[in-house]
Design a binder for these strands. Structure first.
Length: 300
DNA sequence: AACTTCCGCAACCGCATACCT
DNA sequence: GAGGTATGCGGTTGCGGAAGT
Protein backbone atom coordinates (compact mmCIF):
# COMPACT_ATOMS: atom_id res chain seq x y z
CA UNK A 1 0.00 0.00 0.00
CA UNK A 2 1.35 3.37 -0.93
CA UNK A 3 2.67 5.56 1.80
CA UNK A 4 0.14 8.21 0.99
CA UNK A 5 -2.71 5.87 1.49
CA UNK A 6 -4.73 6.34 4.58
CA UNK A 7 -4.11 3.87 7.31
CA UNK A 8 -6.92 1.66 8.38
CA UNK A 9 -6.95 3.08 11.85
CA UNK A 10 -7.65 6.59 10.77
CA UNK A 11 -9.50 6.22 7.53
CA UNK A 12 -12.78 5.70 9.28
CA UNK A 13 -12.58 8.51 11.75
CA UNK A 14 -10.41 11.20 10.30
CA UNK A 15 -12.88 13.46 8.58
CA UNK A 16 -13.13 17.21 8.42
CA UNK A 17 -14.39 17.44 11.97
CA UNK A 18 -11.32 15.68 13.21
CA UNK A 19 -8.90 17.93 11.42
CA UNK A 20 -8.37 20.20 14.41
CA UNK A 21 -7.67 17.25 16.63
CA UNK A 22 -5.33 15.82 14.04
CA UNK A 23 -3.48 19.11 13.82
CA UNK A 24 -3.13 19.17 17.56
CA UNK A 25 -1.89 15.60 17.46
CA UNK A 26 0.73 16.57 14.90
CA UNK A 27 1.95 19.30 17.16
CA UNK A 28 2.05 17.06 20.18
CA UNK A 29 3.93 14.33 18.38
CA UNK A 30 6.77 16.71 17.81
CA UNK A 31 7.14 17.44 21.49
CA UNK A 32 9.96 15.64 23.24
CA UNK A 33 8.82 13.16 25.85
CA UNK A 34 9.44 14.34 29.37
CA UNK A 35 11.06 12.10 31.91
CA UNK A 36 8.81 10.11 34.13
CA UNK A 37 7.99 12.21 37.13
CA UNK A 38 7.44 11.01 40.65
CA UNK A 39 4.17 12.81 41.05
CA UNK A 40 2.87 10.96 38.06
CA UNK A 41 3.14 7.74 40.01
CA UNK A 42 0.98 9.19 42.74
CA UNK A 43 -1.54 10.32 40.16
CA UNK A 44 -1.57 6.89 38.66
CA UNK A 45 -2.20 5.24 41.97
CA UNK A 46 -5.06 7.56 42.72
CA UNK A 47 -6.68 7.03 39.39
CA UNK A 48 -6.12 3.31 39.32
CA UNK A 49 -8.93 2.63 41.72
CA UNK A 50 -11.33 4.76 39.75
CA UNK A 51 -10.19 3.16 36.56
CA UNK A 52 -11.01 -0.25 37.94
CA UNK A 53 -14.62 0.70 37.61
CA UNK A 54 -14.39 1.16 33.90
CA UNK A 55 -13.63 -2.38 32.97
CA UNK A 56 -14.85 -2.29 29.43
CA UNK A 57 -11.82 -2.04 27.22
CA UNK A 58 -11.78 -0.67 23.74
CA UNK A 59 -10.30 -2.65 20.90
CA UNK A 60 -9.70 -2.09 17.25
CA UNK A 61 -8.59 1.04 15.45
CA UNK A 62 -7.49 4.02 17.49
CA UNK A 63 -9.37 7.28 17.21
CA UNK A 64 -7.68 10.64 16.85
CA UNK A 65 -8.85 11.55 20.34
CA UNK A 66 -7.26 8.45 21.78
CA UNK A 67 -4.05 9.20 19.95
CA UNK A 68 -4.10 12.73 21.30
CA UNK A 69 -4.67 11.51 24.81
CA UNK A 70 -1.82 9.06 24.61
CA UNK A 71 0.60 11.51 23.01
CA UNK A 72 -0.29 14.22 25.49
CA UNK A 73 0.16 11.92 28.42
CA UNK A 74 3.51 10.60 27.26
CA UNK A 75 4.70 14.11 26.51
CA UNK A 76 3.94 15.07 30.08
CA UNK A 77 4.88 11.92 31.93
CA UNK A 78 7.09 9.89 29.70
CA UNK A 79 6.58 6.38 28.44
CA UNK A 80 6.78 3.06 30.22
CA UNK A 81 4.65 1.31 32.87
CA UNK A 82 2.05 0.88 30.19
CA UNK A 83 -0.76 -0.61 32.20
CA UNK A 84 -0.77 2.18 34.75
CA UNK A 85 -0.19 4.68 31.97
CA UNK A 86 -3.31 3.48 30.20
CA UNK A 87 -5.34 3.87 33.35
CA UNK A 88 -3.87 7.20 34.35
CA UNK A 89 -4.39 8.64 30.90
CA UNK A 90 -8.01 7.56 31.00
CA UNK A 91 -7.64 5.34 27.98
CA UNK A 92 -9.90 2.33 27.84
CA UNK A 93 -7.11 0.33 26.33
CA UNK A 94 -4.73 -2.28 27.60
CA UNK A 95 -1.19 -1.28 28.34
CA UNK A 96 -0.12 -3.54 25.56
CA UNK A 97 -2.30 -1.74 23.10
CA UNK A 98 -1.00 1.65 24.21
CA UNK A 99 2.59 0.53 23.94
CA UNK A 100 2.05 -0.87 20.47
CA UNK A 101 0.27 2.23 19.28
CA UNK A 102 3.03 4.44 20.58
CA UNK A 103 5.93 2.39 19.30
CA UNK A 104 4.51 1.61 15.90
CA UNK A 105 2.71 4.79 15.05
CA UNK A 106 2.80 7.75 17.40
CA UNK A 107 6.46 8.02 18.30
CA UNK A 108 7.88 11.21 16.79
CA UNK A 109 10.81 9.40 15.24
CA UNK A 110 8.80 6.78 13.42
CA UNK A 111 9.71 6.98 9.77
CA UNK A 112 6.91 6.34 7.35
CA UNK A 113 6.82 5.78 3.65
CA UNK A 114 8.37 3.23 1.38
CA UNK A 115 11.59 1.50 2.13
CA UNK A 116 14.62 2.90 0.37
CA UNK A 117 17.02 0.74 -1.59
CA UNK A 118 19.44 0.89 1.30
CA UNK A 119 16.80 -0.22 3.71
CA UNK A 120 15.62 -3.05 1.51
CA UNK A 121 19.17 -4.17 1.02
CA UNK A 122 19.79 -4.09 4.71
CA UNK A 123 16.63 -6.02 5.47
CA UNK A 124 17.53 -8.72 2.98
CA UNK A 125 21.02 -8.97 4.34
CA UNK A 126 20.06 -9.02 7.99
CA UNK A 127 17.21 -11.44 7.41
CA UNK A 128 19.55 -13.81 5.64
CA UNK A 129 21.63 -13.86 8.78
CA UNK A 130 19.10 -13.65 11.54
CA UNK A 131 15.88 -14.94 10.07
CA UNK A 132 12.62 -13.61 11.45
CA UNK A 133 14.26 -11.66 14.24
CA UNK A 134 12.27 -8.60 13.30
CA UNK A 135 13.02 -6.60 16.37
CA UNK A 136 16.72 -7.20 16.02
CA UNK A 137 16.59 -6.24 12.36
CA UNK A 138 14.58 -3.13 13.19
CA UNK A 139 17.29 -1.97 15.57
CA UNK A 140 19.47 -1.39 12.55
CA UNK A 141 16.90 0.57 10.61
CA UNK A 142 16.37 3.78 12.57
CA UNK A 143 12.78 4.92 12.55
CA UNK A 144 11.48 1.62 11.25
CA UNK A 145 9.47 -0.69 13.45
CA UNK A 146 9.66 -4.44 13.64
CA UNK A 147 6.02 -4.55 12.61
CA UNK A 148 6.71 -2.56 9.47
CA UNK A 149 9.66 -4.71 8.52
CA UNK A 150 7.69 -7.86 9.19
CA UNK A 151 4.88 -6.61 7.00
CA UNK A 152 7.34 -5.69 4.29
CA UNK A 153 8.81 -9.15 4.35
CA UNK A 154 5.49 -10.91 4.33
CA UNK A 155 3.80 -8.80 1.69
CA UNK A 156 6.67 -8.08 -0.68
CA UNK A 157 9.38 -10.63 -0.29
CA UNK A 158 7.16 -13.61 0.29
CA UNK A 159 4.98 -12.53 -2.58
CA UNK A 160 7.91 -12.78 -4.94
CA UNK A 161 8.91 -16.09 -3.47
CA UNK A 162 5.42 -17.33 -4.11
CA UNK A 163 5.59 -16.16 -7.68
CA UNK A 164 8.81 -18.10 -8.04
CA UNK A 165 7.12 -21.16 -6.61
CA UNK A 166 9.57 -21.46 -3.81
CA UNK A 167 9.66 -20.80 -0.13
CA UNK A 168 11.02 -17.45 1.03
CA UNK A 169 13.26 -19.29 3.46
CA UNK A 170 14.55 -21.77 0.94
CA UNK A 171 18.16 -21.76 -0.14
CA UNK A 172 16.97 -21.34 -3.69
CA UNK A 173 15.16 -18.11 -3.01
CA UNK A 174 17.99 -16.84 -0.85
CA UNK A 175 20.37 -17.40 -3.70
CA UNK A 176 18.07 -15.55 -6.04
CA UNK A 177 18.05 -12.69 -3.59
CA UNK A 178 21.79 -12.67 -3.21
CA UNK A 179 22.67 -12.94 -6.85
CA UNK A 180 19.92 -10.97 -8.51
CA UNK A 181 18.00 -8.79 -6.16
CA UNK A 182 20.60 -7.53 -3.74
CA UNK A 183 23.18 -6.58 -6.37
CA UNK A 184 20.57 -4.53 -8.12
CA UNK A 185 19.54 -2.85 -4.94
CA UNK A 186 23.19 -2.21 -4.24
CA UNK A 187 23.56 -0.69 -7.68
CA UNK A 188 20.54 1.49 -7.06
CA UNK A 189 22.02 2.52 -3.79
CA UNK A 190 25.31 3.37 -5.44
CA UNK A 191 23.45 5.53 -7.90
CA UNK A 192 22.33 7.59 -4.99
CA UNK A 193 18.72 6.65 -5.06
CA UNK A 194 17.99 6.66 -1.38
CA UNK A 195 14.32 7.26 -1.72
CA UNK A 196 11.44 4.90 -1.80
CA UNK A 197 9.88 4.12 -5.08
CA UNK A 198 6.85 6.34 -4.72
CA UNK A 199 8.37 8.79 -2.36
CA UNK A 200 7.77 11.75 -4.59
CA UNK A 201 4.07 11.17 -4.54
CA UNK A 202 3.85 10.21 -0.92
CA UNK A 203 3.33 13.66 0.44
CA UNK A 204 1.23 12.90 3.44
CA UNK A 205 0.03 10.11 5.60
CA UNK A 206 -3.17 9.26 7.36
CA UNK A 207 -3.02 12.20 9.71
CA UNK A 208 -2.02 14.61 7.06
CA UNK A 209 1.45 14.56 8.46
CA UNK A 210 4.36 14.84 6.15
CA UNK A 211 5.65 11.43 5.29
CA UNK A 212 9.20 11.14 6.38
CA UNK A 213 10.84 9.75 3.32
CA UNK A 214 14.09 11.28 4.33
CA UNK A 215 17.11 9.86 2.65
CA UNK A 216 18.54 6.83 4.24
CA UNK A 217 21.80 8.66 4.35
CA UNK A 218 20.30 10.91 6.92
CA UNK A 219 18.64 8.24 8.89
CA UNK A 220 21.41 5.73 8.81
CA UNK A 221 24.07 8.21 9.60
CA UNK A 222 22.99 8.01 13.18
CA UNK A 223 23.14 4.27 13.33
CA UNK A 224 25.93 3.37 15.64
CA UNK A 225 25.25 -0.20 16.46
CA UNK A 226 25.66 -1.73 13.05
CA UNK A 227 29.36 -1.21 12.80
CA UNK A 228 31.24 -2.32 9.78
CA UNK A 229 28.15 -3.80 8.26
CA UNK A 230 26.64 -3.84 4.87
CA UNK A 231 24.95 -0.57 5.39
CA UNK A 232 28.09 1.16 6.44
CA UNK A 233 29.67 0.20 3.16
CA UNK A 234 26.85 1.66 1.21
CA UNK A 235 26.70 4.80 3.22
CA UNK A 236 30.32 5.56 3.09
CA UNK A 237 30.30 5.32 -0.66
CA UNK A 238 33.33 3.18 -0.41
CA UNK A 239 32.45 1.26 -3.48
CA UNK A 240 32.18 2.56 -6.95
CA UNK A 241 30.33 -0.29 -8.53
CA UNK A 242 28.48 -3.40 -7.61
CA UNK A 243 31.49 -5.63 -8.05
CA UNK A 244 33.59 -3.68 -5.63
CA UNK A 245 30.67 -3.58 -3.32
CA UNK A 246 30.40 -7.31 -3.12
CA UNK A 247 34.12 -7.80 -2.94
CA UNK A 248 34.33 -5.56 0.06
CA UNK A 249 31.23 -7.00 1.59
CA UNK A 250 32.87 -10.38 1.35
CA UNK A 251 36.12 -9.11 2.77
CA UNK A 252 34.24 -7.84 5.77
CA UNK A 253 32.55 -11.16 6.21
CA UNK A 254 29.14 -9.88 5.36
CA UNK A 255 28.15 -12.59 2.95
CA UNK A 256 28.45 -15.40 5.35
CA UNK A 257 28.24 -18.42 3.15
CA UNK A 258 30.17 -17.29 0.16
CA UNK A 259 33.73 -16.69 -0.77
CA UNK A 260 34.52 -13.41 -2.39
CA UNK A 261 35.00 -14.92 -5.80
CA UNK A 262 31.49 -16.25 -5.65
CA UNK A 263 29.85 -12.98 -5.08
CA UNK A 264 29.17 -11.55 -8.45
CA UNK A 265 26.68 -13.62 -10.35
CA UNK A 266 27.50 -12.37 -13.78
CA UNK A 267 31.13 -13.23 -13.33
CA UNK A 268 30.90 -16.28 -11.15
CA UNK A 269 27.99 -18.61 -11.28
CA UNK A 270 29.12 -20.75 -8.41
CA UNK A 271 26.06 -21.37 -6.36
CA UNK A 272 25.63 -23.17 -3.14
CA UNK A 273 23.30 -25.53 -4.92
CA UNK A 274 24.68 -26.48 -8.35
CA UNK A 275 21.15 -26.92 -9.62
CA UNK A 276 20.65 -23.25 -9.06
CA UNK A 277 23.05 -22.26 -11.77
CA UNK A 278 20.57 -22.83 -14.51
CA UNK A 279 17.68 -21.74 -12.43
CA UNK A 280 19.12 -18.40 -11.52
CA UNK A 281 20.57 -17.89 -14.97
CA UNK A 282 17.07 -18.39 -16.20
CA UNK A 283 16.11 -15.31 -14.36
CA UNK A 284 18.97 -13.44 -15.84
CA UNK A 285 17.75 -14.17 -19.31
CA UNK A 286 14.07 -14.02 -20.25
CA UNK A 287 11.64 -13.71 -17.39
CA UNK A 288 14.03 -12.27 -14.90
CA UNK A 289 14.73 -9.25 -17.02
CA UNK A 290 11.25 -8.11 -16.31
CA UNK A 291 10.67 -9.87 -13.07
CA UNK A 292 13.75 -8.55 -11.42
CA UNK A 293 13.84 -5.15 -12.98
CA UNK A 294 14.70 -2.33 -10.65
CA UNK A 295 11.24 -1.00 -11.01
CA UNK A 296 9.81 -4.30 -9.89
CA UNK A 297 12.12 -4.32 -6.95
CA UNK A 298 10.98 -0.87 -5.96
CA UNK A 299 7.41 -1.88 -6.39
CA UNK A 300 7.81 -4.88 -4.13
C1' DA B 1 -22.23 1.03 -11.52
C1' DA B 2 -22.09 -3.04 -8.81
C1' DC B 3 -19.77 -6.74 -7.22
C1' DT B 4 -15.75 -9.62 -6.14
C1' DT B 5 -11.05 -10.42 -5.24
C1' DC B 6 -6.65 -9.01 -3.82
C1' DC B 7 -3.44 -6.53 -1.07
C1' DG B 8 -1.25 -3.72 2.59
C1' DC B 9 -1.08 -2.62 7.10
C1' DA B 10 -2.58 -1.67 11.94
C1' DA B 11 -3.82 -4.14 15.70
C1' DC B 12 -4.43 -8.25 18.32
C1' DC B 13 -3.00 -12.64 20.47
C1' DG B 14 -0.17 -15.96 22.78
C1' DC B 15 4.08 -16.97 24.45
C1' DA B 16 8.74 -16.00 26.37
C1' DT B 17 11.58 -13.34 29.10
C1' DA B 18 12.75 -9.78 32.45
C1' DC B 19 11.86 -7.65 36.53
C1' DC B 20 10.06 -7.02 41.11
C1' DT B 21 8.51 -8.40 45.73
C1' DG C 1 13.51 -19.67 44.76
C1' DA C 2 8.42 -18.82 43.93
C1' DG C 3 4.88 -16.18 42.32
C1' DG C 4 3.06 -12.23 40.11
C1' DT C 5 3.39 -8.50 36.86
C1' DA C 6 5.28 -5.91 33.02
C1' DT C 7 7.39 -5.85 28.77
C1' DG C 8 8.98 -7.54 24.32
C1' DC C 9 8.60 -10.45 20.38
C1' DG C 10 6.83 -13.00 16.42
C1' DG C 11 2.74 -14.89 14.20
C1' DT C 12 -1.81 -14.01 12.77
C1' DT C 13 -6.13 -11.65 11.84
C1' DG C 14 -9.33 -8.62 9.84
C1' DC C 15 -10.51 -4.12 7.93
C1' DG C 16 -10.59 -0.86 4.23
C1' DG C 17 -9.13 0.60 -0.16
C1' DA C 18 -7.48 -0.60 -4.84
C1' DA C 19 -7.82 -3.28 -8.72
C1' DG C 20 -10.15 -6.35 -11.56
C1' DT C 21 -14.37 -8.27 -13.76
Amino acid sequence: MAASQRSRSTAAQLDVDDQAAADQLMTMMRRPAAVLQDEAAAEEEASAAAADLQLELRRGPWTVDEDLTLVNYIADHGEGRWNSLARAAGLKRTGKSCRLRWLNYLRPDVKRGNFTADEQLLILDLHSRWGNRWSKIAQHLPGRTDNEIKNYWRTRVQKHAKQLNCDANSARFKDAMRYLWMPRLADASQLGDHHGYNSTTAMGDAHGMPVMTSSSSDSFATSESYDGGLYANVQDNEMVNGGDYWMQAANKGLCSNYESEQLHPHEHSQFQDPDLVGWVQGFSEGLSENFWSLEDIWKM
